[in-house]
Design a protein around this nucleic acid. Structure first.
Length: 442
RNA sequence: GCGGCUAUGGUGAAACGGUUAUCACACCAGUUUGUGGUACUGGUAUUACGGGUUCGAUUCCCGUUAGUCGCCCCA
């Protein structure tokens, strides 16, 4: 019978194990210590600043993103993870969460809550682009949104929170800020910028020639030396701001100075989503001034989106500002900068058993030990004591409880000190007292 | 979407047209059936997938897929 099965197995075509989809990743237990560290710190700081947690659906109506992020943007045009569902609806996996948060704000009448409404979220986002370092098709963002407040003090505090969180997880970062004004002034500026760049067309790189028509603001942060030289004397967006935006930006800077946030003014900083206005900012790693950072270097980004609520059908003139942190990138940078997340606590006790009877009892007594507050582990699936002591040693337990046939008969257990190797037989009913005493002694 | 590099057990590597694909670590089982951190024994791979060249391919060629790096773009 057994040989028959074996033959059958080899004869049948070998099952091919499915792989994860492109750009998708399993986050394994070893990796989770970084994730847990980030999650914990993020949750703590969110609560400390009175943000309320919100979880939005991962799947939304495609329109939500097309209308807010912008039809022309790459995020929508080529990276949207969209499909038609069984009910013939055009849906999309969310590429970011701000649009969903604003939708939720409107849907649930949050305008009736004390303003501004402060929300935080954490979860997977999806962009269908080509994976590379620090970029996946499914990635995770932690984000904050403050909806219903226009004052620059909110922008300042949000930037402060971002910096604090990065500090909390041990990262050295710097913040770059800029203001991109309103849609109207930005349009005027674009025209001016394109006019200027046209005059220097021959000096621009190939990409920038293309950008000229498609996405002229991107000319500003091109890394090609020729373009850089041209852009040095280009008109600056700050000079095109309307008076209110200018005032807002200056106030923001005053606040940042007040709380000693070390920011860098970057007049070339722009954002890739249409809904942004006024304040925009980016958090990048600080690895010393002369280190050239790669293009996937932004750990977090954010800005004001004063028109978005109205655009999605909410009340007029509901100002808002938000930020998002790329968790994979933050973790990547933690490794880069050598940040060690706190290790898992060392187990106090390993519970070993020998024999069927002992195993039954062990299963029950394990619960007693655990309920008493000890960090206790087991390997009930293993039979030999040797294998269990090996396992105990591997997890670095301080004591091993040994329960065998003999002990079951006598109503005792053995407690072995894993460092000295000394062991003592004690009555079962004194187990917890003995363990407490021993643990306290160490 | 475009270009470079890569693809051998769970992990990291070796072999390189030619007999049972080598090693280390990890994992599992065991070394007279109840004692770990050491030693020993054994087990664990149709060399990513598909095609081609060849008497013969893990090794050469092409394609696909995936990873990786850069570009575009973005967190």
């Amino acid at each position: 019978m057994a040989t028959e099965n074996k033959e059958e197995e080899t004869a049948v075509k070998r099952v091919k194990t499915p792989e994860t989809l492109r750009g998708m990743k399993d986050i394994l237990p070893d990796e989770q210590i970084y994730w847990e560290y980030f999650r914990r710190r993020a949750r703590e700081i969110s609560e400390a600043y009175s943000f309320g947690r919100i979880d939005m659906p991962i799947l939304e109506d495609e329109k939500l993103f097309v209308r807010t992020v912008g039809k022309q943007t790459d995020i929508v045009e080529k990276e949207l993870y969209n499909f038609v569902d069984k009910g013939e609806s055009k849906v999309a996996l969310r590429p970011e969460a701000t649009a969903s948060a604003v939708r939720a704000y409107i849907n649930h009448g949050m305008l009736n809550l004390p303003q501004p409404v402060k929300l935080w979220y954490m979860g997977p986002m999806f962009r269908y682009d080509r994976p590379q370092s620090g970029r996946y098709r499914q990635f995770h963002q932690y984000g904050l949104e403050v909806i219903g407040g226009a004052d620059a003090v909110i922008d300042a505090q949000l930037i402060l929170i971002a910096i604090k969180l990065f500090e909390d997880i041990g990262l050295k970062v710097k913040v770059e800020i800029n203001s991109i004004g309103t849609a109207v002034t930005r349009q005027e500026y674009k025209i001016e910028l394109v006019a200027y760049a046209r005059k220097h067309r021959k000096e621009l790189c190939e990409d920038c020639t293309r950008r000229l028509a498609r996405n002229p603001l991107r000319l500003l942060d091109c890394k090609a030396t020729g373009c850089r030289a041209v852009m040095k004397d280009a008109p600056q967006i700050l000079d095109w701001l309307d008076d209110d935006s200018k005032q807002h930006f200056m106030t923001l800077i005053e606040y940042l100075d007040e709380i000693s946030v070390p920011y860098v003014l970057n007049p070339h900083l722009v954002r890739g989503l249409d809904y942004y206005n006024r304040t925009v900012f980016e958090v990048v790693p600080d690895r010393g001034d002369d280190v050239e950072l790669g293009s996937q270097s932004a750990l977090a980004a954010g800005g004001r989106y004063d028109g978005l609520v109205e655009q999605l059908g909410g009340r007029e003139e509901t100002a808002a500002v938000g930020l998002a942190i790329g968790i994979e990138r933050a973790i990547l940078e933690m490794k880069q900068q050598g940040v060690e997340p706190p290790p898992l606590p060392r187990p106090d006790i390993f519970f070993a058993q020998i024999g069927a009877e002992a195993r039954r009892l062990a299963l029950r007594h394990f619960e007693e030990v655990r309920a008493a507050g000890f960090n206790v582990v087991e390997a009930f699936g293993k039979a030999s004591l040797k294998a269990q002591l090996e396992a105990s040693n591997k997890v670095d337990a301080r004591f091993t409880i040994i329960l065998g046939q003999l002990e079951v008969q006598d109503g005792t257990i053995i407690v072995r000190d894993m460092e000295s190797g000394a062991q003592e037989t004690i009555p079962m009913d004194q187990m917890l007292d003995y363990l407490k005493k021993e643990m306290a002694r160490k």
